[in-house]
Write a protein that binds this DNA or RNA. Sequence first.
DNA 1: CATTGAAATCAACGCCTGTTGACTTCACGA
DNA 2: TCGTGAAGTCAACAGGCGTTGATTTCAATG
Lengths: 195, 195
Amino acid sequence: MNKPRGRRPGPGTTEPAILAATREVVAEVGVERASMREIAARADVDPAAIYRFFASKDELVAAALRPPDVAAEVAAGLADADEPGRAMVAGVLTAWDDPEVRQHLTALVRAAFTNELAAEMLREVFTTRIVGAVELAAQPDDAALRASLAASQVIGLALLREILAIEPLANVSTERLVEIIAPTIERYLGGDLGP
Amino acid sequence: MNKPRGRRPGPGTTEPAILAATREVVAEVGVERASMREIAARADVDPAAIYRFFASKDELVAAALRPPDVAAEVAAGLADADEPGRAMVAGVLTAWDDPEVRQHLTALVRAAFTNELAAEMLREVFTTRIVGAVELAAQPDDAALRASLAASQVIGLALLREILAIEPLANVSTERLVEIIAPTIERYLGGDLGP
DNA sequence: CATTGAAATCAACGCCTGTTGACTTCACGA
DNA sequence: TCGTGAAGTCAACAGGCGTTGATTTCAATG
């Protein structure tokens, strides 16, 4: 009743399955408690098989959490929006509504707080992609500060809403949240920040 | 050259030392990678000694991360402030400037994202203390929503500034940050939130 | 149809983890 | 001053971890 030992027929589905399983487990329990054995089990694969594709757990995690395309899309959407702040909030929140994206981002964010590699990845998303978009879309002055202020609100919101699941934040509709948060981001991106 | 085996003279300094060491290590590496052995070493104590005071690692962590008094102080300060939003931001940011408080809060927040116990503790701080203060200080309507919105901005800021150390946020002065963030919180606590 | 090498399983390695039990020392109340 | 029990150390346990080497199977190439 054991699995066959050798190579499998069909197209190479194993590597994607491993990556998806990694995101799944990391989103649930964080990097440190996401064991290779558990990841392998979810991908329905032997733990050793992972090492055919990734040299170490670190490398696997890095590959699995690599920022999703959606980050670039949202950033790009800022450039030619009437209200870049609203576009940013709406972009992130609606992206987050997609289960796959949600899992990916949850995994990335959760990992970032205990894992230096993931932290660096998240840092990179903000300091390159978002700062660049803000420079194009809004005030080029203080673009880095403006971008990180906006990011602080958006990440804080995502964290409390999705990971800590603080009520009533978790159950407010995306639409209403956009209405509430957009003016804040609008001000951070283009408004007066004082002296 | 080994340590003496028996009981030590003087007042009981061991338990506080263990708690402090726990916060120190957890703030640095998170709960999962904070090992009992490392904690014991920092407290200059045998690992088994920890079990004289705490039944398990979970219990130790729970005791060490128990929300600091400063949370209550800041919440209380909101009640009779002219601008509660500004008081909240200033309270949190200046509290965070104290190294001991910073370590405690960093440990708590970092833990909260991978550890259900710490998450529950953080949730409790927000849903009881902060919501209560907001009810007294600002609009009683939607107090829970207003409180969690404010918290999302403040936590997001603390996270990016202190844990991810995103530039330039990490190097902006506390005073300037208060000026920038206060209007946001003011609006969340007392302003119009739309439909 | 034979050869090759990628893909997969299995079993084990050494290490680190939280935790426990046995033993020892000493501060303190009677 | 004597007994008791709290406070400590030490050594070990069982279990989980990341990782590796040997082996097997089979798809693809000639």
